[in-house]
Design a protein around this nucleic acid. Structure first.
Length: 561
RNA sequence: CUGUCCGUAGCACAGUUGGAUAAUGCAUCAGACUCCGACUCUGAAGAUCGAGGGUUCGACUCCCUCCGGGCAGGCCA
């Protein structure tokens, strides 16, 4: 537990004891102590911690909130809490103020924990599988995948930091309809090399990459596959091109600093009978019926909007069936405690159906958490930037990473909550100024390194400070900064609870802003040696927190810029 | 038509799970470099929290209705 968390916990205990003591002395009538909150007020003039305990217990003690507050505060014992005074305010809030010892304890804690500061065992080692990107291996990745990649990877790191045991997974759709389409597209491009007048079907893949694959295949195999059966030809083409595409996905994602623990292939679910088994299980439990020659799942009975087809009348499963089998595999076969999917918001209608199927299979559907992600708009020169000039096609991940630094991409895609539209300003992302948030944060880190370096040139080395020396940090800029640092572990836990890494992006930005403010107001170099060392300790604490976050997000923390 | 997400200052957006004077950045206006990096900072101005009702000590937050926008609703994936 962090210093801040311990302080809250002790205050909570102290308030409970004060209630009991007030009742036993007759200051309050007998009554149930209701659950109350301890929170950090928005305005610091309202104290560092505030409780609504008096207000929420007005009913059960049949007294005015302010009277209850007086009774509590007359009995409260704050010794050992790192709090030294309180006041009753407004409609009955009790506001508490940190003692100087609190700030010193925070800095000592950060120094002692170092790169582990922020880590907790909140997750209790629960096993989490985070599946993200999972782009079709039939073509290149696009900007939506870039957001999903940054989001999924950083969410994984965040959960790891919060004490979960995390695995990253890419689901390879190497079976089913889109592979059929892939084979067909390759076949047409291949045959076009040898025969005139063959048209690409409207719904085939028209990208240049398909043509390139066909040509390369022809260079190796010549016209060997022109006269054989279509089935054989497509099989050979897919067998050639698909592994190349999958290797390409892996390579591009590595460039984006994403390394998966597993590349899970859809085809394994078909080959080992898992897809068929899911339908059989649902049927055995009586959750399916036949209509119009197809097999339907009674999804409505399990909370979905309507029933849907599992097996088409042509005997082939619909796309949901492998998905159900896949999630069954995650949660039952591999027995992860939690499965998280990062999906585009256009999939939102499909989530209740998947969950209905899991419920019907006897799996607690709450173990599946879907993080939906809204569209990204790329903005360039103040306008929406949709198409790449060279190809006339949508921007690919690789093109994007050629245009902007990877640090910026990873930071910007987690600037906003997943479920909101994101405007990605390409000009801002490459800008080297404080307007660029990633630059602003990195600069704070570099600036601290520079201070340390400058002092070292004068033979001043950071040393351990006593609590009394640290208590010299009393300027508002110093206090605010320390309070920010103190909340780091809580921020990680809150962000992990919400599956929202963007909270940490905001947090690190705010921390950098407070540091720049401090830097401007308080000179580290000072005549007063203890004060200088105390400020240096604060700087190093800030550096630790920023570095921990940037490392977690796989963004560079430069010593100089 | 139904479901779902969103609507906060000119723009882009926070809001700690229902708390006290709605935060921040850009843009605008007024300022600050003999000073650990001006790659920075200090002020000012700017909001009927889409609209209306309800729940209660208290609502940007929860519930209902309406308005506006995104997305979804296939034996496509």
């Amino acid at each position: 537990m962090s210093t801040a968390q311990i302080t809250v916990k002790k205050l909570n205990d102290a308030i409970r004891k004060a209630f009991e003591s007030a009742v036993s002395k007759g200051l309050l009538p007998e009554g149930e102590i209701p659950s109350f909150n301890i929170e950090i007020p928005a305005d610091r003039s309202h104290g560092d911690l505030a409780t609504n305990a008096a207000m929420v217990s007005a009913r059960s003690f049949r007294s005015a909130p302010r009277k209850i507050a007086e009774a509590i505060t007359s009995e409260i014992d704050l010794s050992g809490t790192n709090l030294d005074r309180f006041e009753i305010a407004g409609p009955g809030f009790i506001n508490f103020f940190y003692a100087p010892a609190f700030y010193a304890a925070v800095l000592e804690e950060i120094k002692a924990k170092g790169e582990n500061y922020g880590r907790s065992d909140f997750g209790g080692g629960k096993r989490v599988l985070v599946e993200f990107v999972s782009a079709n291996p039939t073509g290149p990745m696009h900007v939506g995948n870039a957001r999903g990649g940054a989001l999924g990877d950083q969410l994984s790191s965040l959960l790891d930091e919060a004490g979960y045991q995390v695995e990253r997974e890419f689901y390879v759709n190497d079976a089913g309809n889109q592979i059929e389409k892939f084979g067909l597209s390759l076949e047409v491009r291949y045959l076009q090399l040898y025969t005139e007048g063959i048209e690409m079907p409207e719904d085939a893949y028209h990208g240049q990459d398909i043509t390139d694959h066909a040509k390369a295949f022809a260079e190796i195999n010549g016209d060997k596959y022109v006269d054989c059966s279509s089935e054989e030809r497509r099989k050979a083409l897919v067998a050639y091109a698909l592994p190349l595409n999958i290797a390409g996905l892996e390579r591009d994602l590595l460039k984006y600093r994403i390394k998966y623990d597993n590349w899970f292939r859809e085809s394994t679910l078909h080959n080992n009978g898992a897809v068929k088994k899911v339908v059989d299980m649902l049927t055995e439990k009586g959750h399916t019926y036949e209509k119009d020659g197809a097999v339907w799942f009674r999804a409505e009975q399990f909370g979905a909007d309507k029933d849907f087809v599992l097996i088409r009348s042509n005997g082939l499963p619909t796309y949901v069936v492998p998905d159900i089998a896949y999630h069954y595999d995650k949660l039952v076969t591999r027995n992860f405690d939690i499965a998280i999917d990062i999906l585009g918001a256009d999939h939102h209608g499909y989530v209740p159906r998947l969950k209905a199927a899991l419920t019907a299979l006897g799996v607690d559907a709450d173990r599946l958490n879907v993080v939906l992600m809204q569209m990204v708009r790329l903005i360039k020169n103040g306008e929406q930037y949709k198409l790449s000039k060279r190809s006339g096609k949508a921007i690919t991940l690789v093109t994007l990473l050629d245009e902007i630094p990877i640090d910026a991409a990873r930071f910007f895609f987690n600037l906003r909550e997943a479920n909101t539209h994101l405007d990605f300003d390409l000009d801002l992302a490459v800008e080297k100024s404080s307007q660029n948030p990633v630059y602003y944060v990195q600069y704070a880190h570099a600036r601290i390194c520079n201070i340390v370096k400058k002092l070292a040139e004068e033979n001043i080395q950071p040393r351990d400070c006593t609590a009394q020396e640290l208590a010299k940090l009393t300027a508002p800029e110093e206090i605010e900064l320390i309070i920010k640092l103190a909340s780091f572990e809580d921020e990680i836990i809150c962000a992990a609870k919400d599956y929202d890494p963007s909270r940490i992006t905001k947090y690190v930005y705010d921390t950098a802003a407070l540091f720049h403010k401090f830097y401007n107001a308080c000179k580290v170099k000072s005549e007063d040696e203890s004060l200088m060392q105390a400020r240096l300790a604060l700087c190093l604490a800030v550096k630790t927190v920023i570095a921990n976050i940037l490392k977690m997000f796989k963004i560079d923390a430069p010593e100089s810029m």
